[in-house]
């Protein structure tokens, strides 16, 4: 695994570049979790107390946020120590860009999934699913005419077929959209 360009001081010979990048990403996650815990703790202070019990609606969330904040803080400190031991400064680096570069297929399919979810209501389950299945299979598989034919068959069966199955067997009516 390559270290992304412009990632700050070079790690020592003993520290694999991937390990440093992964630890930096985890450090970012600890900081985000700490910030979220702190923010939600403040929000929980406005939750009403109860006349009937010592703990109100906000006490348990406060307890959870304190635990989350404390654990994230300890983990972040451990992460900084680890990065120093690995010989890398805990500086920000283009983690997101590196992630996108290494996970092109994942990102593309998830983007298609997000568009699919957005179109689910207007187009309806059957049509939106057909388009998503077709697009996703073509994104993942190598291009070939045989692959395209298989993709169309699979898309048709698992979009219109699944819609029919849910409606007739489980009596669950998936969004109909343009098919009314």
């Amino acid at each position: 695994m390559r270290e992304p360009a412009g990632s700050g001081p070079a790690p020592s010979d003993a520290a694999p570049a991937g390990e440093v990048a992964a630890e930096r990403a985890r450090l970012v996650s600890y900081v985000v979790l700490f910030a979220a815990a702190a923010g939600l703790y403040v929000v929980s202070l406005s939750l009403p107390t109860s006349r009937w019990e010592p703990l109100g609606a906000g006490s348990f969330p406060r307890l959870v946020m304190v635990a989350l904040g404390a654990l994230s803080l300890v983990a972040a400190l451990g992460s900084v120590r680890k990065l120093r031991r690995l010989g890398a400064a805990p500086a920000a680096n283009p983690l997101v860009a590196a992630f996108f570069a290494r996970h092109r297929v994942v990102v593309a399919v998830f983007a298609a999934f997000a568009v699919y979810l957005a179109l689910l209501r207007p187009l309806g389950f059957a049509v939106a699913t057909f388009l998503f299945l077709l697009a996703a299979q073509l994104l993942i598989a190598r291009w070939s005419w045989r692959g395209l034919a298989l993709a169309i068959v699979v898309a048709a069966v698992f979009s219109f077929g699944l819609n029919f199955l849910f409606a007739t067997v489980f009596m669950v009516f998936l969004p109909r959209g343009i098919l009314g």
């Binding site: 998503f132 996703a136 299979q137 993942i140 692959g147 699979v154 699944l162």
Partner: peptide, 11 residues
């Protein structure tokens, strides 16, 4: 995988 992943996602 190109068939399994999209189909299971839809399920």
């Amino acid at each position: 995988t190109s068939v399994i992943v999209p189909v299971v996602t839809v399920c």
